[in-house]
Amino acid sequence: MKRIASLAGVFLVAASVLAGCQSAQEPPKEINLFAWSEYVPQGVIDGFTKETGIKVNYEAYASNEEMLAKLVSGAQKYDLIQPSEYTIEALIKENQLLPVDWSKVPNSKNIGSQFKNLPHDPEHKYSVPWMAGSVGIVVNSEKVTEEIDEYDDVFQEKYSGRIVVLDDPREIVSWALGSIGKGPNDVTPETLEQVKPILAKWLPLVKVYDSDSPKTALLNGDVDIGIVWSGEAAILYNENPKFKYVLPKEGAHQFVDSLAIPANAPNPEGAMAFMDYILRPEVSKLISADFPYTNPNVEAQKRLSPEEKNNPASYPPGDPKLEGFRDIGEQAVQIDKIVTDMKAEG
C-alpha cells in the first residue's frame, strides 16, 4: 500500500514537472471562482486542479445581487461567476461579460439544444449552463389530499399557516402574475397594480418565507404545502415520496444558472478550461448527484441512474410550460416595495 502511494507520488511529481514545462508561457495557474454557496462539489474542484494544476479559489454568495454587488465594487477580480438567467442578461447589456471562445470549450457540444440561445443569451455567446431548475408546488400528500395544480389552489383559506414560500419578491410576484394569466416578465406599473389585491389575499396565509432551505419547514412538519426550488423538492422526494412536486398549469419560472466570465477576468483561459471540464459527462454527473436539479448536459443525463432520472422534481414529466426571468431594470424596486408592503400588512 505504502509503495503504491509513493509510486503515485513520483508520478504526480513527474506529471506536474511535465505540466510545468508545457505551460511555460501560460498565465497564472489559478482561477477565482465566484459561485452560489454549496453549488460546486469539492470533488469537481479537486479533480480539475489535479488534472490541470490550476488552483481554484472558490468564493461563495447567496444571491445574484450579492454577487453583482461584489463584482461591481471591483475589490476582487473573478474569472468565473455563476449568475442566473436574468442576471446574465443584465451583465451582457452592461458589457460586463467576455464572450466564450467555443473552440476552447469543445465539450460545449454536450449542452442540450433547449438550453442554448435562450432569451438571456440569444446568440449563445457568453454562458455555459450549469444547472437548470424550476419553481413549483410541493405538497405533503399525507396532509393535503385534494388535487393541487395551480397557484390559487395553494393560497386557500384552509391552508392558512401551513404554507412555505421562497423569500423572494420577484418569484412571489411572478406567481400572482401567473394566476391572472400573465407571464412572469409582464411587469409593468399596470400589471403590478393588478397583482396587489392578490398578494394582499395570499401573503397573510403564509407561515414561513425561506429561500435558503424551504425544505426544512416541510420536513419538520411545520407546514404541509409550499412553492420552492425544484432541487429542494427533489431532495424532499428522495427523503420521502409523500412530498409531491407539481408544476402549476399557469406556467412556472425556469431558472438557468450558468458559468460566465467577467470582462475583467485575469485568467479567461483558465476559466474556459474549467467550463470545458465541468461539461464532461462524467464530471457533470457528479454535480447532479449532489444537486438534483435539471442537468442541461445531455450526455450526462444519459449516465444518470434511473432513480435520478425518475425524480419528478429534477425531470418533470410531460411538457410543462416554463419561462425564464428577464432583466426588468427599475421595476425590481417597485416589486420589492409592493411585497414588503403586503408582508407588513399581514
Binding site: 444571491s63 450579492e66 454587488a69 418565507y209 419547514a217 425590481a332 420589492d336 414588503t340 408582508k343 407588513a344
Partner: peptide, 25 residues
C-alpha cells in the same frame, strides 16, 4: 428570519434587501 419565518420584515431585513435582494437599490 430563522425563528420568525421571515414573515414580518424588520428594518434590518429591509436594509439587507436593498443590497442583496431583487431591488439592488
Amino acid at each position: 428570519d430563522i425563528l420568525g419565518g421571515g414573515k414580518v420584515d424588520m428594518i434590518g431585513n429591509i436594509i439587507e434587501n436593498q443590497f442583496k435582494g431583487n431591488a439592488r437599490n
